[in-house]
Design a binder for these strands. Structure first.
Length: 439
DNA sequence: TCTGGGGTCCTAGGACCC
DNA sequence: TCTGGGGTCCTAGGACCC
Protein backbone atom coordinates (compact mmCIF):
# COMPACT_ATOMS: atom_id res chain seq x y z
CA UNK A 1 0.00 0.00 0.00
CA UNK A 2 1.22 3.46 -0.86
CA UNK A 3 1.37 5.56 2.29
CA UNK A 4 2.83 8.63 0.61
CA UNK A 5 0.70 11.74 0.87
CA UNK A 6 -1.38 12.90 -2.06
CA UNK A 7 0.32 15.65 -4.02
CA UNK A 8 -0.75 17.95 -6.79
CA UNK A 9 1.75 18.78 -9.50
CA UNK A 10 1.20 21.91 -11.56
CA UNK A 11 3.20 22.19 -14.75
CA UNK A 12 2.94 25.33 -16.80
CA UNK A 13 4.90 26.79 -19.66
CA UNK A 14 6.85 30.01 -19.15
CA UNK A 15 5.53 32.90 -21.28
CA UNK A 16 3.84 30.27 -23.42
CA UNK A 17 2.82 32.28 -26.49
CA UNK A 18 6.17 34.06 -26.61
CA UNK A 19 8.00 30.75 -26.18
CA UNK A 20 5.96 29.23 -29.05
CA UNK A 21 6.98 32.08 -31.34
CA UNK A 22 10.61 31.32 -30.52
CA UNK A 23 10.34 27.64 -31.37
CA UNK A 24 10.47 28.38 -35.10
CA UNK A 25 12.47 31.58 -34.75
CA UNK A 26 15.40 30.62 -32.55
CA UNK A 27 17.11 33.87 -33.46
CA UNK A 28 14.56 35.53 -31.15
CA UNK A 29 15.78 33.49 -28.19
CA UNK A 30 17.10 36.45 -26.26
CA UNK A 31 15.18 39.20 -28.03
CA UNK A 32 12.48 40.94 -25.99
CA UNK A 33 9.25 39.65 -27.50
CA UNK A 34 5.54 40.42 -27.05
CA UNK A 35 2.52 38.63 -28.49
CA UNK A 36 -0.47 40.80 -29.31
CA UNK A 37 -4.16 40.04 -28.91
CA UNK A 38 -6.53 39.72 -31.84
CA UNK A 39 -6.63 42.88 -33.90
CA UNK A 40 -3.13 43.64 -32.58
CA UNK A 41 -4.93 45.44 -29.76
CA UNK A 42 -2.96 44.78 -26.62
CA UNK A 43 -0.12 42.72 -25.16
CA UNK A 44 -1.22 39.25 -24.07
CA UNK A 45 2.15 37.60 -23.56
CA UNK A 46 5.61 38.90 -22.76
CA UNK A 47 9.00 37.25 -22.77
CA UNK A 48 11.08 37.47 -19.60
CA UNK A 49 13.11 40.36 -21.06
CA UNK A 50 9.95 42.39 -21.62
CA UNK A 51 8.66 41.66 -18.11
CA UNK A 52 11.95 42.96 -16.76
CA UNK A 53 11.43 46.20 -18.67
CA UNK A 54 8.31 46.74 -16.59
CA UNK A 55 5.82 46.49 -19.44
CA UNK A 56 2.56 45.26 -17.91
CA UNK A 57 0.36 42.56 -19.37
CA UNK A 58 -2.73 43.85 -21.13
CA UNK A 59 -1.32 47.23 -22.05
CA UNK A 60 -2.55 48.64 -25.36
CA UNK A 61 -0.03 48.08 -28.14
CA UNK A 62 -0.34 51.59 -29.54
CA UNK A 63 0.76 52.96 -26.17
CA UNK A 64 4.11 51.18 -26.22
CA UNK A 65 4.76 50.91 -29.94
CA UNK A 66 7.31 53.72 -29.92
CA UNK A 67 9.09 52.39 -26.88
CA UNK A 68 9.11 48.95 -28.49
CA UNK A 69 10.80 50.32 -31.57
CA UNK A 70 13.35 52.16 -29.46
CA UNK A 71 14.16 49.21 -27.21
CA UNK A 72 14.17 46.55 -29.90
CA UNK A 73 11.04 44.74 -28.75
CA UNK A 74 9.68 42.40 -31.41
CA UNK A 75 5.89 42.02 -31.68
CA UNK A 76 3.91 39.10 -33.05
CA UNK A 77 0.18 38.84 -33.76
CA UNK A 78 -1.33 35.94 -31.86
CA UNK A 79 -1.34 32.71 -33.84
CA UNK A 80 -3.64 30.38 -31.94
CA UNK A 81 -3.43 27.61 -34.48
CA UNK A 82 0.31 27.34 -33.82
CA UNK A 83 -0.07 27.60 -30.03
CA UNK A 84 -2.83 24.99 -29.88
CA UNK A 85 -0.75 22.56 -31.87
CA UNK A 86 2.36 23.01 -29.71
CA UNK A 87 0.20 22.81 -26.59
CA UNK A 88 -1.20 19.46 -27.54
CA UNK A 89 2.28 18.08 -28.25
CA UNK A 90 3.52 19.42 -24.92
CA UNK A 91 0.61 17.83 -23.04
CA UNK A 92 1.27 14.53 -24.76
CA UNK A 93 4.92 14.52 -23.77
CA UNK A 94 4.08 15.33 -20.15
CA UNK A 95 1.35 12.71 -19.94
CA UNK A 96 4.00 10.00 -20.21
CA UNK A 97 5.63 10.99 -16.90
CA UNK A 98 2.75 11.01 -14.41
CA UNK A 99 -0.74 9.50 -14.25
CA UNK A 100 -4.00 11.44 -13.82
CA UNK A 101 -3.26 14.43 -16.01
CA UNK A 102 -5.83 17.20 -16.22
CA UNK A 103 -5.26 19.77 -18.94
CA UNK A 104 -6.41 22.97 -17.33
CA UNK A 105 -5.58 25.54 -19.99
CA UNK A 106 -3.58 25.89 -23.18
CA UNK A 107 -0.31 26.16 -21.24
CA UNK A 108 -0.80 24.27 -17.98
CA UNK A 109 -1.90 20.96 -16.56
CA UNK A 110 -2.26 19.30 -13.18
CA UNK A 111 -1.28 15.82 -12.09
CA UNK A 112 -2.84 14.18 -9.06
CA UNK A 113 -0.32 11.72 -7.64
CA UNK A 114 0.72 9.76 -4.58
CA UNK A 115 4.46 9.57 -4.10
CA UNK A 116 7.19 10.93 -1.89
CA UNK A 117 8.53 14.36 -2.73
CA UNK A 118 11.99 13.17 -3.67
CA UNK A 119 10.61 10.87 -6.36
CA UNK A 120 8.27 13.57 -7.65
CA UNK A 121 11.05 16.10 -7.97
CA UNK A 122 13.24 13.59 -9.71
CA UNK A 123 10.55 12.65 -12.27
CA UNK A 124 9.53 16.29 -12.71
CA UNK A 125 13.11 17.15 -13.57
CA UNK A 126 13.14 14.54 -16.31
CA UNK A 127 9.76 15.75 -17.57
CA UNK A 128 11.02 19.31 -17.75
CA UNK A 129 14.07 18.23 -19.71
CA UNK A 130 11.98 16.17 -22.10
CA UNK A 131 9.70 19.11 -22.91
CA UNK A 132 12.70 21.33 -23.44
CA UNK A 133 14.58 18.87 -25.60
CA UNK A 134 11.59 17.75 -27.61
CA UNK A 135 9.79 21.04 -28.09
CA UNK A 136 12.10 23.88 -27.04
CA UNK A 137 9.48 24.97 -24.53
CA UNK A 138 10.49 25.97 -20.98
CA UNK A 139 8.13 24.90 -18.20
CA UNK A 140 7.90 25.48 -14.45
CA UNK A 141 6.59 23.04 -11.90
CA UNK A 142 4.95 23.46 -8.50
CA UNK A 143 4.36 20.52 -6.15
CA UNK A 144 2.07 20.83 -3.12
CA UNK A 145 -0.76 19.11 -1.22
CA UNK A 146 -3.50 21.16 -2.95
CA UNK A 147 -4.11 22.86 -6.28
CA UNK A 148 -4.07 26.31 -4.71
CA UNK A 149 -0.77 25.72 -2.91
CA UNK A 150 0.78 24.26 -6.06
CA UNK A 151 -0.20 27.48 -7.82
CA UNK A 152 1.29 29.54 -5.00
CA UNK A 153 4.70 27.87 -5.07
CA UNK A 154 4.92 27.80 -8.85
CA UNK A 155 3.93 31.45 -9.10
CA UNK A 156 6.29 32.36 -6.33
CA UNK A 157 9.31 30.66 -7.82
CA UNK A 158 8.71 32.36 -11.15
CA UNK A 159 7.84 35.87 -10.08
CA UNK A 160 9.76 36.51 -6.90
CA UNK A 161 12.62 34.10 -6.64
CA UNK A 162 13.42 34.61 -10.28
CA UNK A 163 14.24 30.92 -10.53
CA UNK A 164 12.48 28.91 -13.17
CA UNK A 165 12.25 25.27 -12.52
CA UNK A 166 10.72 23.21 -9.77
CA UNK A 167 9.51 24.27 -6.35
CA UNK A 168 7.79 22.19 -3.71
CA UNK A 169 5.62 23.20 -0.80
CA UNK A 170 7.88 21.25 1.57
CA UNK A 171 10.88 23.23 0.42
CA UNK A 172 9.00 26.52 0.71
CA UNK A 173 7.94 26.01 4.33
CA UNK A 174 11.22 24.47 5.44
CA UNK A 175 13.00 27.57 4.12
CA UNK A 176 10.52 29.90 5.79
CA UNK A 177 7.69 28.66 7.98
CA UNK A 178 5.82 31.93 7.34
CA UNK A 179 6.21 31.56 3.62
CA UNK A 180 2.58 32.47 2.92
CA UNK A 181 3.05 35.81 4.69
CA UNK A 182 5.16 36.94 1.74
CA UNK A 183 2.47 36.23 -0.83
CA UNK A 184 0.10 39.14 -1.49
CA UNK A 185 -3.54 38.08 -1.14
CA UNK A 186 -4.24 39.24 -4.69
CA UNK A 187 -1.75 36.68 -6.03
CA UNK A 188 -3.72 33.77 -4.61
CA UNK A 189 -5.54 31.66 -7.19
CA UNK A 190 -9.25 32.40 -6.76
CA UNK A 191 -8.79 35.94 -5.48
CA UNK A 192 -9.34 38.29 -8.37
CA UNK A 193 -9.34 41.98 -9.09
CA UNK A 194 -12.63 42.67 -7.27
CA UNK A 195 -12.12 40.55 -4.23
CA UNK A 196 -8.53 41.54 -3.44
CA UNK A 197 -9.27 45.17 -2.44
CA UNK A 198 -12.29 44.09 -0.39
CA UNK A 199 -10.18 41.57 1.53
CA UNK A 200 -7.42 44.10 2.02
CA UNK A 201 -9.91 46.57 3.44
CA UNK A 202 -10.68 43.89 6.04
CA UNK A 203 -7.00 43.66 6.95
CA UNK A 204 -6.43 40.46 4.98
CA UNK A 205 -3.27 41.39 3.12
CA UNK A 206 -1.42 38.14 2.52
CA UNK A 207 -2.09 34.50 1.71
CA UNK A 208 -1.30 33.74 5.36
CA UNK A 209 -3.92 36.25 6.57
CA UNK A 210 -6.45 34.62 4.28
CA UNK A 211 -5.55 31.12 5.45
CA UNK A 212 -6.06 32.17 9.08
CA UNK A 213 -9.29 34.11 8.53
CA UNK A 214 -12.83 33.10 9.47
CA UNK A 215 -13.91 30.84 6.60
CA UNK A 216 -17.59 30.81 7.57
CA UNK A 217 -17.79 34.58 7.79
CA UNK A 218 -16.05 35.06 4.45
CA UNK A 219 -18.28 32.49 2.83
CA UNK A 220 -21.36 34.40 3.97
CA UNK A 221 -19.90 37.59 2.61
CA UNK A 222 -18.32 36.46 -0.65
CA UNK A 223 -19.67 33.01 -1.49
CA UNK A 224 -18.47 29.48 -1.41
CA UNK A 225 -15.40 29.89 -3.64
CA UNK A 226 -13.46 31.87 -1.11
CA UNK A 227 -14.16 29.27 1.56
CA UNK A 228 -12.71 26.58 -0.69
CA UNK A 229 -9.64 28.72 -1.28
CA UNK A 230 -9.14 29.14 2.48
CA UNK A 231 -9.33 25.38 3.03
CA UNK A 232 -6.91 24.76 0.19
CA UNK A 233 -4.43 27.20 1.76
CA UNK A 234 -4.75 25.15 4.96
CA UNK A 235 -3.70 22.09 2.99
CA UNK A 236 -7.18 20.59 2.74
CA UNK A 237 -7.85 19.69 -0.87
CA UNK A 238 -11.37 20.64 -1.95
CA UNK A 239 -11.16 22.01 -5.45
CA UNK A 240 -11.91 19.47 -8.11
CA UNK A 241 -10.72 20.16 -11.61
CA UNK A 242 -12.51 18.54 -14.53
CA UNK A 243 -12.18 14.82 -14.69
CA UNK A 244 -9.78 13.20 -17.06
CA UNK A 245 -12.45 12.15 -19.51
CA UNK A 246 -13.35 15.71 -20.28
CA UNK A 247 -9.79 16.72 -20.80
CA UNK A 248 -8.89 13.79 -22.97
CA UNK A 249 -11.93 13.58 -25.15
CA UNK A 250 -12.63 17.23 -25.68
CA UNK A 251 -15.46 18.28 -23.46
CA UNK A 252 -18.70 19.85 -24.49
CA UNK A 253 -19.04 23.40 -23.35
CA UNK A 254 -22.31 24.81 -22.04
CA UNK A 255 -22.14 27.93 -24.15
CA UNK A 256 -20.29 29.04 -27.26
CA UNK A 257 -19.33 32.62 -27.77
CA UNK A 258 -17.77 34.35 -30.72
CA UNK A 259 -16.98 38.03 -30.32
CA UNK A 260 -14.53 40.39 -31.91
CA UNK A 261 -13.43 43.98 -31.95
CA UNK A 262 -13.55 45.39 -35.47
CA UNK A 263 -10.41 46.80 -37.03
CA UNK A 264 -12.48 49.86 -38.03
CA UNK A 265 -15.75 51.11 -36.52
CA UNK A 266 -19.01 50.11 -38.17
CA UNK A 267 -21.63 52.80 -38.80
CA UNK A 268 -24.27 50.94 -40.78
CA UNK A 269 -26.91 48.47 -39.71
CA UNK A 270 -26.31 46.27 -42.74
CA UNK A 271 -22.59 45.91 -41.97
CA UNK A 272 -23.38 45.16 -38.37
CA UNK A 273 -25.72 42.39 -39.54
CA UNK A 274 -22.93 41.06 -41.77
CA UNK A 275 -20.56 40.90 -38.83
CA UNK A 276 -23.17 39.24 -36.62
CA UNK A 277 -23.91 36.74 -39.33
CA UNK A 278 -20.21 35.88 -39.77
CA UNK A 279 -19.71 35.44 -36.01
CA UNK A 280 -22.82 33.27 -35.80
CA UNK A 281 -21.36 30.94 -38.38
CA UNK A 282 -18.02 30.75 -36.59
CA UNK A 283 -19.85 29.85 -33.40
CA UNK A 284 -21.97 27.37 -35.34
CA UNK A 285 -18.81 25.73 -36.59
CA UNK A 286 -17.83 24.92 -32.99
CA UNK A 287 -21.40 23.92 -32.15
CA UNK A 288 -21.34 21.32 -34.92
CA UNK A 289 -17.87 20.14 -33.92
CA UNK A 290 -19.05 19.26 -30.42
CA UNK A 291 -22.27 17.74 -31.78
CA UNK A 292 -24.61 20.03 -29.91
CA UNK A 293 -27.81 21.87 -30.69
CA UNK A 294 -28.57 25.34 -29.48
CA UNK A 295 -31.79 26.66 -27.93
CA UNK A 296 -31.05 30.38 -27.53
CA UNK A 297 -29.02 32.94 -29.39
CA UNK A 298 -27.84 36.18 -27.80
CA UNK A 299 -26.11 39.02 -29.58
CA UNK A 300 -24.39 42.12 -28.26
CA UNK A 301 -22.87 45.07 -30.10
CA UNK A 302 -21.28 48.08 -28.51
CA UNK A 303 -19.42 51.30 -29.04
CA UNK A 304 -16.00 51.83 -27.47
CA UNK A 305 -15.81 51.80 -23.69
CA UNK A 306 -12.63 53.86 -23.79
CA UNK A 307 -13.96 56.90 -25.54
CA UNK A 308 -16.24 59.59 -24.25
CA UNK A 309 -18.76 59.87 -27.02
CA UNK A 310 -22.13 61.40 -27.61
CA UNK A 311 -23.60 58.29 -29.13
CA UNK A 312 -22.72 55.42 -26.84
CA UNK A 313 -24.77 52.35 -27.66
CA UNK A 314 -24.96 48.91 -26.11
CA UNK A 315 -27.23 46.57 -27.99
CA UNK A 316 -28.19 43.30 -26.37
CA UNK A 317 -30.83 40.85 -27.43
CA UNK A 318 -31.79 37.21 -27.00
CA UNK A 319 -34.01 35.05 -29.19
CA UNK A 320 -35.36 31.62 -28.28
CA UNK A 321 -35.34 29.17 -31.17
CA UNK A 322 -38.49 27.22 -32.00
CA UNK A 323 -36.57 24.06 -31.26
CA UNK A 324 -32.94 23.22 -30.50
CA UNK A 325 -31.07 23.45 -33.78
CA UNK A 326 -27.76 23.72 -35.61
CA UNK A 327 -29.33 25.02 -38.79
CA UNK A 328 -27.19 27.82 -40.25
CA UNK A 329 -30.12 29.76 -41.68
CA UNK A 330 -32.29 29.54 -38.57
CA UNK A 331 -29.41 30.61 -36.34
CA UNK A 332 -28.22 33.40 -38.59
CA UNK A 333 -31.73 34.79 -38.94
CA UNK A 334 -32.33 34.53 -35.20
CA UNK A 335 -29.06 36.35 -34.48
CA UNK A 336 -30.02 39.19 -36.79
CA UNK A 337 -33.46 39.37 -35.14
CA UNK A 338 -31.71 39.90 -31.80
CA UNK A 339 -30.51 43.33 -32.86
CA UNK A 340 -33.52 44.38 -34.93
CA UNK A 341 -34.67 47.88 -34.18
CA UNK A 342 -31.85 48.59 -31.73
CA UNK A 343 -29.31 50.10 -34.10
CA UNK A 344 -28.39 53.70 -33.29
CA UNK A 345 -27.75 55.81 -36.39
CA UNK A 346 -24.43 57.63 -36.13
CA UNK A 347 -22.98 55.43 -33.38
CA UNK A 348 -19.51 53.97 -33.98
CA UNK A 349 -19.76 50.26 -33.19
CA UNK A 350 -16.39 48.70 -32.44
CA UNK A 351 -17.37 45.26 -31.24
CA UNK A 352 -19.98 42.55 -31.66
CA UNK A 353 -20.50 39.09 -30.24
CA UNK A 354 -22.78 36.12 -30.59
CA UNK A 355 -23.50 33.65 -27.79
CA UNK A 356 -25.11 30.28 -28.38
CA UNK A 357 -26.54 28.88 -25.18
CA UNK A 358 -29.03 26.35 -23.90
CA UNK A 359 -26.86 23.70 -25.58
CA UNK A 360 -27.92 20.08 -25.63
CA UNK A 361 -26.34 16.97 -27.09
CA UNK A 362 -27.53 16.32 -30.60
CA UNK A 363 -27.85 12.63 -29.80
CA UNK A 364 -30.18 13.32 -26.88
CA UNK A 365 -32.68 15.36 -28.82
CA UNK A 366 -35.87 13.67 -29.94
CA UNK A 367 -37.83 16.20 -31.98
CA UNK A 368 -41.59 16.18 -31.83
CA UNK A 369 -42.83 15.99 -35.37
CA UNK A 370 -45.57 18.53 -34.87
CA UNK A 371 -43.01 21.20 -34.09
CA UNK A 372 -40.24 20.30 -36.48
CA UNK A 373 -42.37 19.56 -39.53
CA UNK A 374 -41.95 23.03 -40.99
CA UNK A 375 -38.15 23.09 -40.79
CA UNK A 376 -36.69 22.96 -44.27
CA UNK A 377 -33.25 21.44 -44.14
CA UNK A 378 -32.47 21.50 -47.87
CA UNK A 379 -30.20 24.53 -47.75
CA UNK A 380 -28.35 23.52 -44.61
CA UNK A 381 -27.75 20.09 -46.13
CA UNK A 382 -26.16 21.73 -49.15
CA UNK A 383 -23.98 23.90 -46.92
CA UNK A 384 -22.88 20.92 -44.88
CA UNK A 385 -22.05 18.86 -47.97
CA UNK A 386 -19.99 21.71 -49.39
CA UNK A 387 -18.23 22.15 -46.09
CA UNK A 388 -17.29 18.49 -45.92
CA UNK A 389 -16.00 18.57 -49.48
CA UNK A 390 -14.16 21.89 -49.56
CA UNK A 391 -13.36 22.54 -45.92
CA UNK A 392 -14.36 25.10 -43.32
CA UNK A 393 -15.14 28.70 -44.14
CA UNK A 394 -15.39 28.07 -47.90
CA UNK A 395 -19.15 28.50 -48.02
CA UNK A 396 -21.66 30.18 -45.73
CA UNK A 397 -24.65 32.44 -45.32
CA UNK A 398 -24.09 36.09 -46.32
CA UNK A 399 -20.47 37.01 -45.72
CA UNK A 400 -19.88 33.74 -43.90
CA UNK A 401 -18.23 32.03 -46.86
CA UNK A 402 -16.24 34.87 -48.33
CA UNK A 403 -12.48 34.90 -48.03
CA UNK A 404 -10.49 38.08 -48.27
CA UNK A 405 -6.82 38.63 -48.91
CA UNK A 406 -5.66 37.63 -45.42
CA UNK A 407 -3.92 34.34 -44.76
CA UNK A 408 -6.33 33.21 -42.09
CA UNK A 409 -9.37 31.22 -43.18
CA UNK A 410 -11.73 33.37 -41.20
CA UNK A 411 -10.79 36.59 -42.94
CA UNK A 412 -13.86 37.87 -44.77
CA UNK A 413 -12.21 40.69 -46.63
CA UNK A 414 -14.69 43.12 -45.08
CA UNK A 415 -13.08 46.38 -44.02
CA UNK A 416 -13.86 45.65 -40.36
CA UNK A 417 -12.19 42.23 -40.50
CA UNK A 418 -9.42 41.47 -38.01
CA UNK A 419 -6.04 43.11 -38.30
CA UNK A 420 -2.94 40.93 -37.83
CA UNK A 421 0.11 42.68 -39.09
CA UNK A 422 2.75 40.61 -37.32
CA UNK A 423 1.53 37.10 -37.92
CA UNK A 424 3.97 34.19 -37.84
CA UNK A 425 3.65 30.98 -39.83
CA UNK A 426 1.45 28.06 -38.79
CA UNK A 427 4.48 25.88 -39.12
CA UNK A 428 3.10 22.74 -37.50
CA UNK A 429 -0.35 22.61 -39.10
CA UNK A 430 0.04 23.86 -42.70
CA UNK A 431 2.26 22.31 -45.32
CA UNK A 432 2.49 25.64 -47.10
CA UNK A 433 3.83 27.37 -44.01
CA UNK A 434 6.41 24.88 -42.87
CA UNK A 435 9.69 26.23 -41.59
CA UNK A 436 12.56 26.44 -44.09
CA UNK A 437 15.94 25.19 -42.98
CA UNK A 438 19.03 26.63 -44.62
CA UNK A 439 22.04 24.37 -44.46
C1' DT B 1 -5.91 56.33 -35.58
C1' DC B 2 -5.13 52.09 -32.52
C1' DT B 3 -7.43 49.09 -25.78
C1' DG B 4 -8.60 40.65 -26.69
C1' DG B 5 -11.44 36.52 -26.48
C1' DG B 6 -13.66 32.55 -24.40
C1' DG B 7 -15.14 30.11 -20.76
C1' DT B 8 -17.15 28.41 -15.67
C1' DC B 9 -19.78 28.62 -11.45
C1' DC B 10 -22.56 30.85 -7.80
C1' DT B 11 -26.15 33.75 -6.00
C1' DA B 12 -30.08 36.70 -5.55
C1' DG B 13 -34.43 37.58 -6.90
C1' DG B 14 -38.62 37.00 -9.61
C1' DA B 15 -42.25 33.97 -11.47
C1' DC B 16 -44.95 30.38 -10.62
C1' DC B 17 -47.14 26.54 -8.22
C1' DC B 18 -49.43 24.14 -4.41
C1' DT C 1 -62.68 40.68 3.49
C1' DC C 2 -58.74 38.63 5.48
C1' DT C 3 -53.88 37.16 2.10
C1' DG C 4 -48.93 32.23 4.44
C1' DG C 5 -45.28 29.54 3.62
C1' DG C 6 -42.45 26.65 1.10
C1' DG C 7 -40.73 24.72 -2.93
C1' DT C 8 -38.73 24.78 -7.86
C1' DC C 9 -37.10 26.80 -11.92
C1' DC C 10 -35.11 30.37 -14.60
C1' DT C 11 -32.36 34.36 -15.54
C1' DA C 12 -29.28 38.22 -15.01
C1' DG C 13 -25.34 39.70 -13.10
C1' DG C 14 -21.11 39.22 -10.83
C1' DA C 15 -17.16 36.91 -9.56
C1' DC C 16 -13.36 34.04 -11.09
C1' DC C 17 -10.04 31.63 -14.49
C1' DC C 18 -6.68 31.46 -18.63
Amino acid sequence: MNTSPRQIILADADSFFASCERVFHPQLAHTPLVVLSNNDGCVVARSAEVKKMGIPEGIAWFKIREQAQRDGIVARSSNYELYASLSSRMMNVMSTFFPHQTVYSIDECFFDVQADTVTLVETSTRMREAVWQGLDLPISIGIAPTHTLAKVVSHWSKHYRGVRGIMTWDEAVSTDSHFLAHVPVGDVWGVGRRLAPKLMAMGILTAQDLRDSDAVLLRKKFGVHIQQTIFELRGISCIRIDDEDNALHGRRTTQIMCSRMFSHPIYSASELRQAVSVYTQKALHRLTAQESLCSYVSVFCSTSRFKEQELASHIHGTVALNEPTNDPLALTQAACRCIDGQFTVGAAYVRAGVILHGLIDEADYQPLDVFSAHTDTALSDVLETARQRFGDFRIGVGYGGIRGQGRMDQDTGAHWSMKREHLSARATTRWSEMATVHA
